[in-house]
């Protein structure tokens, strides 16, 4: 579907250059107040307001960093290439982080930063309503060996970031109240208030975005823990996952053992290890 004009009106020509007026007249009756074009335009405008609004709701941090107009341009370009293919609006922004990797033009000097923000904000969505499976109990761990597969909660998202954007996104979320409901009514797009954002300096951060008692948390983890959980998430057996975690690590054997113990203690406490999910 062609985007609106800069005045939020329907384009007067179609993608192939023919007249939208004539196209509308061929299908839609005019009435005593509105031409066919104007009646079609009501739907055309609502379509774009609705889909742009749906994506914007999932990325308030990205909007705050970019500013309203550049953000709207970005979302529009994204939606032109990634229209909805799902019955639910929930998934409309799912491809944005990956799409953004190939589009540095929206913030050439801050591309890595906005990419990190987008990744974290989508991880929040996945953690918010992703599935959960009964957690493993203490007794389940006693039979584990090097060949064992350990499963992680479906809602757990692991991120390797170049900026500490968790601070930024948390600051934005404190200022915005999520509207997580869809309805069949015509609605208006809500605008974000201007807010002061924390300054971002480049530094590697590893995050586990997870849900605990129905709230989403961003937990910073160290590099070795990230590599261990990421390997387990890919289905790597426990022994190999541990090897992968400490590959190129400068930690002593003693510190490695302590790290492993700490990783497992925290993950078990938070219920990250779970039974295999039903497919």
């Amino acid at each position: 579907m062609r985007p609106l004009t800069s005045d939020f009106l329907m384009q007067t020509t179609t993608a192939d250059g023919s007249s939208t007026h004539e196209l509308a007249q061929s299908y839609i009756k005019p009435n005593d107040r509105l031409e066919s074009f104007e009646r079609l335009e009501i739907y055309n405008r609502q379509y774009w307001f609705r889909v742009i609004g749906a994506v914007a709701e999932d990325y308030p941090g990205l909007q705050a960093v970019l500013g309203d107009k550049p953000f709207d341009r970005l979302v529009l370009e994204y939606l032109k290439e990634n229209p909805s293919t799902s019955f639910t609006l929930r998934n409309l922004g799912s491809k944005l982080p990956q799409w953004l990797e190939g589009h540095p033009e929206f913030a050439p000097n801050r591309h890595d930063l906005i990419l990190d923000v987008a990744r974290l904000e989508w991880a929040y969505v996945e953690a918010f309503d992703g599935g959960s499976v009964p957690a493993l109990l203490g007794s389940d761990f006693s039979s584990l060996g090097a060949e064992s597969l350990l499963f992680l909660q479906p809602h757990l998202q692991l991120l390797s970031l170049k900026y500490p954007v968790d601070e930024l996104v948390l600051a934005v979320h404190r200022e915005t109240s999520p509207s997580d409901m869809m309805s069949n009514a015509v609605s208006e797009r809500k605008q974000l208030h201007k807010m002061r954002l924390p300054k971002m300096r480049r530094s590697s951060v590893y995050l586990a975005v997870h849900r605990y008692e129905n709230s989403v948390y961003y937990r910073r983890i160290d590099r070795e823990a990230f590599r261990l959980f990421a390997a387990l998430q890919r289905g790597t057996p426990l022994g190999l996952a541990l090897e992968e975690a400490f590959l190129e690590s400068v930690l002593s054997a003693e510190d490695q053992a302590a790290t492993i113990q700490q990783c497992f203690a925290h993950a078990s406490e938070l219920g990250w290890f779970c039974k295999q999910r039903d497919e």
Partner: peptide, 9 residues
């Protein structure tokens, strides 16, 4: 559609 999800609040 608001509840056709896998889990959460």
């Amino acid at each position: 559609e608001n509840y056709m999800i896998d889990g959460g609040r």
